[in-house]
Design a protein around this nucleic acid. Structure first.
Length: 563
DNA sequence: TGAAGTTTAA
């Protein structure tokens, strides 16, 4: 592990064989290097550890002239070749924008170095000559949202800068990042601060807190926060109660949601959403008897089940592949004058497709038209997914054209679905072309765009392409999240790239993620068969470092006024 | 990022 953590640091300037490389990662388009088009020619596919040494360094190849070049796409589904344009127009940038981008880069450069604590960052940031603004804070928090130490260190430093005060939105973002990493003591401290500086705590803040606590399986703490939120000037009304119920239901605790609901409904009047939230919770948990009971209770309280209620029920039967009951419910809906909508049909079509009943799924399309429903982007995306899964990529492309024809432009999910389908069918080049096409159409990628590509690179052992993609992601403010790291570590490990696997594992821990024990064990088992003794010791140390510790939230609740 | 639906993970 001599070259730790190089992988996520885009080298600037990019050097290759003594020449400055012209390839740049821009926000509006990028050059596709030669080896990117045909990675297997560049990266040896041998799985021996010796071969890894060559790939350990991230060096971009010399820029090749790919502009206007048309490529032949062997084995593709036949989509038309794409023209790749070099560079992007920069004339639109104002002087102020350029200054802002420079400030973002400067802060990012500092934050990318490893720091042991947020306090160390505050010290390192001292005299950093950037102009702090809400826009800058927003951008940095977004970019470092998966690195709470960096984000919080910067946030604390920014808060001390003259002429600047954090706004409620920035506080809320920071609260959410701390909650995501289970830094609940710091999170509650921040909330106290928000309250003291001028009543900045809102239902938005409390929502983030309750959702993060529930996600960390601290359901009763979330309920506690709800009970005490009025101390921060946030009203405990129906809307707030519904957020609590939803957070509990979505995070595997529908029974606690029912308990909280029964306790609260005496003082807070429930509405239709309250009941629908619970019905959905039961349905997702596969507890159909309880779902029906809640529906009955709903009617007793004067609310008739709506299309939302029935759709939840239909989804539950779809999960059980009980399509006969689904059709009975659809009939019942029609009888009661509660027509299914496009969401209902999307659920049904998707379930049929996933169950391998492709033709029946496609027949749903006819039913939709017959019913006078108007397909929307999600419906089309689901259709594209089903076709992609069935290997009918040409048909999927046809659906995209159909979307455009009906005035619905393909969105992020459309592209993600297409990229994923292309990767699944080993059409790497088509997948990469789609990535370029997205940028051309100003469709901002997200982590899900890259996941199938990263997975394909791991499977094929295209380490350089993998690292290129990770740098590309970074420039777009997308950093690997917990699951992406887990994927990278395990896939690289399984595919004979143990050194890179260890690098990502270490990087993951340093970013504050706690890898699962299975992930450690997978890597350690693999290391047993190698001579990488120091790497093994390091991984064992990391494993001990993240051994589960659970600190009591209640004391934090007390300190921050939540008691 | 959520009162119902669409993308990844063995």
């Amino acid at each position: 592990m001599r070259r730790c953590f190089r992988v996520l640091v885009p080298p600037e300037p990019l050097q290759h064989a003594g020449r400055r490389v012209v390839v740049r990662f821009s926000t509006a388009g990028f050059d596709l290097p030669d080896w990117f088009r045909n990675p297997k020619d560049v990266v040896p596919s041998s799985s021996g550890l010796d071969a890894e040494e060559d790939d350990d360094d991230f060096v971009l190849p010399i820029k090749s002239d790919v502009s206007d070049e048309r490529s032949s796409d062997k084995g593709s589904g036949g989509s038309s070749p794409l023209t790749i344009r070099a560079g992007c127009p920069v004339s639109a940038c104002s002087h102020e924008d350029a200054e802002f981008e420079a400030d973002v880069d400067e802060v990012s450069r500092i934050l990318r170095s490893r720091f042991a604590s947020p306090e160390a960052i505050v010290i390192a940031m001292d005299c950093c000559p950037v102009r702090v603004s809400a826009r800058l804070v927003d951008k940095i928090l977004c970019r470092f949202g998966n690195d709470w130490v960096a984000a919080f260190g910067f946030f604390m430093w920014a808060g001390t800068q003259e002429g600047y005060c954090h706004c409620a939105d920035s506080y809320d973002m920071m609260v959410d990042i701390l909650g995501k990493f289970k830094q609940f003591d710091l999170m509650f401290g921040l909330i106290s601060q928000m309250h003291e500086v001028g009543g900045l705590v809102s239902l938005t803040t409390i929502t983030k807190v309750m959702r993060r606590l529930c996600r960390a399986s601290r359901w009763s703490d979330a309920i506690d926060v709800f009970h005490k939120m009025d101390r921060f000037g946030v009203v405990k009304d129906t809307k707030a109660m519904n957020v609590l119920l939803d957070a509990l239901c979505k995070e595997r605790s529908v029974k606690r949601a029912r308990g909280a609901f029964r306790e609260l409904m005496g003082t807070i009047p429930p509405d239709e959403s309250s009941f629908n939230t619970l019905v959905h919770g039961w349905c997702k948990a596969g507890m159909l008897k309880e779902a029906r009971e809640t529906m009955a209770e709903m009617e007793k309280n004067g609310f008739s089940p709506s299309v939302i209620t029935y759709t939840s029920l239909i989804e539950a039967y779809c999960m059980e592949k009980d399509f006969q009951t689904v059709h009975n419910i659809l009939d019942e809906m029609h009888r009661k004058g509660c027509s299914p909508n496009i969401i209902t049909y999307t659920i049904l079509m998707h379930a049929l497709g996933k169950a391998g009943r492709t033709q029946e799924a496609l027949n749903t399309f006819a039913k939709v038209k017959q019913d006078g429903c108007v397909p929307d982007a999600s419906f089309y995306n689901s259709l594209i997914y089903i076709l992609g899964r069935a290997g009918r990529l040409q048909d999927a492309i046809f659906v995209v054209k159909e979307m455009r024809r009906t005035g619905i432009p393909p969105n992020l999910t459309t592209f993600n679905t297409l990229i994923s389908a292309a990767c699944d069918h080993s059409q790497a080049e088509n997948a990469l072309k789609l990535l370029v096409k997205m940028e051309e159409q100003s469709c901002k990628p997200d982590i899900k765009t890259y996941t199938p590509l990263l997975k394909l690179c791991c499977r094929r052992q295209w380490v350089k392409t993998l690292l290129f993609l990770i740098c590309h992601m970074f420039r777009k403010d997308i950093t690997p999240d917990f699951s992406t790291y887990t994927l990278l570590v395990s896939w690289l490990c399984r595919n004979g790239r143990i050194v890179q696997s260890c690098l990502f594992l270490e990087e993951m821990v340093l970013k504050g993620f706690a890898p699962k024990q299975e992930t450690f064990d997978l890597v350690l088992n693999k290391l047993d068969n190698t001579k990488l003794h120091s790497a093994k010791r390091k991984v064992e140390l990391l494993k001990m470092q993240v051994a589960p510790t659970r600190s009591p939230v209640r004391s934090y609740l007390g300190e921050s006024g939540f008691v």
